[in-house]
Amino acid sequence: MSAISSKRNIIIVSIAAIAVILLGIFTPLLRLIFGLLIPLTAILVFIGGIIYRVVQWAKSPEPFRITTTCGQQHSLPWIKSNRLDNPHSTWAVIGRMALEVLFFRSLFRNTKAELKSGPNLVYGSTKYLWLGALAFHWCFLVIVLRHLRFFTDPTPSFVLWLESLDGFFQIGVPILYMTDIVILAALGFLLFRRLMDAKLRYISLPADYAPLLLILAIVATGVLMRYTSAKPDIVGVKELMMGMASFHPALPSGIGWMFYLHLLLVSMLIAYFPFSKLMHMAGVFLSPTRNLANTNRVIRHINPWDYPVKVHTYQEWEHEFRDKLKSSGYELDDKS
């Protein structure tokens, strides 16, 4: 099967699955498929796929440290080095990785080239991508952690604490979560950003839009379920989820179609995860330009995969072709 037709098949199957839910046909068999089989398969693909990708990455040798250095390298004691931008110790690397993973330091340096009223190309810093990405990722994390209340009984106290902080302003019933508003704004901005700028639109692929639109659809169904009259029976939802987490599957009826749509979209996202750019979740930890100390000059690094190198020195070469070189009048180093 060619890649294009298999992609088309995936899209057709996805649309058919969504259509089934929207039609609201809920036989026990379909409940089993949408409530248990699809989510469980997706989880297995997610876990297995991520481990597979990471192991594949780890099989590639890392012969040379290609650290990107954005500050003064550590050298002489009286030259002040930039520890976080040009780390030379493990702790400094951990610091740089923490800033990268938690605060997206690379995106903070994002620049934009513009022709501003004149022939000069101006490079300015643009923090909007960094801000949008930071808002989106942190909200996503909080939302995922909040969902633990559907998977644990009793719900751990850090989840309750997070929930009360998220609903701090006690607006409406059910209480409005700040992260729901911020993630919608951030996703909207990230999509808007791709669509507005012609240069960015040109380099954007379906693989760039797919995760954005999928997550937007997941957030939209979640928000509709919480704040509008499309509320599902959440006790039933928790029974289903607890059944999965405790390996005692339960299939409560009458949960509501919006929930099954939400669950299907989430299953799609996590099954798609290992095959997509979303693998940056694991990849950020394995990026060689970030996670290696800049010790190229301090320590001798030896090529890991074919050392010792078999060398043929000049002396050996001269010795091998000694007679031929001599007869051609070549001046030999070894006169003996």
Partner: peptide
């Protein structure tokens, strides 16, 4: 969720 419920779960059910 799996190990948390095994270790600390109430086991009360629905």
């Amino acid at each position: 969720p799996v190990w948390y419920n095994l270790a600390f779960g109430s086991g009360n059910g629905a």
